[in-house]
Nucleic acid binder design. Structure first.
Length: 365
DNA sequence: AATGCGTGGAT
DNA sequence: TATCCAAGCAT
């Protein structure tokens, strides 16, 4: 039995971490603070769920304004279930990973219509809902329902691979890490324990230059003892991002309105709004796809915008034309003033901005 | 079990 | 500028 599995160490880690959390917990809009919790305040499962979905692969800073907007506009799961998918996509625009928004709405519908408006309280029950995977199910079970679930996110992977010098590369190490986290998770305040680990990972046990001197569990940390903390976690090398080229077409009618189309519900930017584009492909000849224009027109290049997705870089040449006739085409014509309210992902805002500089400047919502 | 899926901030 | 990566999930 390694030191990682000794109950004494597990208890030391949990008690030191909770004591640190009581003093240093970040104040977050969706969080019940340790002080509030000690006064009997309980978490709202809806707000915990909403925040956890938004926080998947997304920074706290990016999530905050979106969470505030959603929680104000749709204060309960029933309100969200009553909303249209279109309005949810519009409100999610800019946050990325748009399948989360589609699944958020599906999940709200299931909870409202099949569970009487109450979230399941078990990991398995939560795991069965759209958009809820192993991490999110454990996080909601622990934070909202006080269950000793093993919560493992990227922060906690980093903390535990350092604590026990787990040198198996990620993602293979996930099962091993989950076992160690399960042993360390206390029955007492499991939700605060998970949140403490995430705060520790975000503020002290950072990917680069961790502040070990300030860490409440540095004496239990094997990597710290050997000075190798920055060598963990070990990760498999990433693949290079190919560059894809494409063309976007901003069609402006003589009354100033712009042609928008809804993208297919699956795949990249699924269900979101955009301008017509060519296919985006890797090509050596540098051709961006001018010949893919949706209809005849005096298409003039407005330059090339660049946008980096998770698995490729896109260089998009933006073409603009003023059309004096009314071409037959799918989609709808939108007044430029209403564009900020459309479900436009960032790359589409960039393309529109190439044709209409300043369109999406702050304050012009 | 690899791969597809956004965005913006930090370094 | 290039790279990393942030409270992952679905398939």
């Amino acid at each position: 039995m390694s030191s990682a599995e000794q109950p004494k160490t597990a208890h030391e880690i949990a008690s030191a971490l909770l004591a640190w959390y009581d003093k240093h917990a970040r104040a977050l809009p969706w969080r019940v603070s340790p002080t509030e919790r000690s006064q009997g305040v309980v978490a709202d499962p809806y707000r915990v769920w909403l925040s956890e979905i938004m926080l998947q692969q997304t920074t706290v800073q990016a999530v905050k304004p979106y969470f505030e907007n959603f929680a104000t506009r749709w204060p309960t799961v029933a309100d969200l279930a009553a909303a249209s998918t279109e309005d949810v996509m519009k409100a999610w625009a800019g946050l990325g990973y748009y399948s989360r928004a589609r699944n958020l709405k599906k999940c709200a519908d299931v909870v409202a219509n099949e569970h009487g408006g109450r979230f399941p309280q078990t990991e398995d029950g939560l795991r069965a809902l759209p958009g809820i995977g192993p991490y999110t199910a454990a996080a909601i079970a622990a934070i909202a329902f006080n269950q000793p679930a093993a919560v493992v996110d990227g922060n906690i992977e980093r903390v535990f691979t350092r604590l026990f010098e787990i040198s198996t590369p990620l993602p293979s190490a996930k099962a091993e890490i989950r076992e160690v986290v399960a042993r360390a998770t206390p029955a007492y305040r499991p939700g605060d324990f998970a949140q403490a680990l995430m705060d520790l990972g975000a503020t002290i046990c950072t990917p680069k230059r961790p502040a070990c001197a300030l860490c409440p569990i540095n004496e239990q940390c094997q990597a710290r003892q050997s000075g190798n903390q920055e060598q963990f976690p070990v990760k498999l090398p990433k693949k290079a991002k190919p560059v894809r080229l494409g063309a976007a077409f901003v069609a402006e009618r003589d009354d100033g309105e712009v042609l928008l189309v809804k993208r297919p519900d699956t795949g990249l930017l699924g269900g979101m709004t955009g301008v017509p584009t060519s296919n985006w492909t890797v090509r050596a000849d540098g051709e961006t796809g001018r010949n893919a224009a949706p209809f005849e027109g005096n298409w003039r290049s407005k330059g090339v915008i660049s946008h980096v997705f998770t698995h490729f870089e896109l260089r998009l040449e933006v073409f603009h034309a003023v059309v004096t006739h009314k071409p037959e085409h799918e989609g709808w014509w939108s007044n430029p003033d209403s564009l900020p309210g459309e479900a436009l992902p960032t790359v589409m805002k960039k393309a529109l901005s190439a044709a209409f500089p300043g369109l999406f400047k702050k304050g012009k919502t």
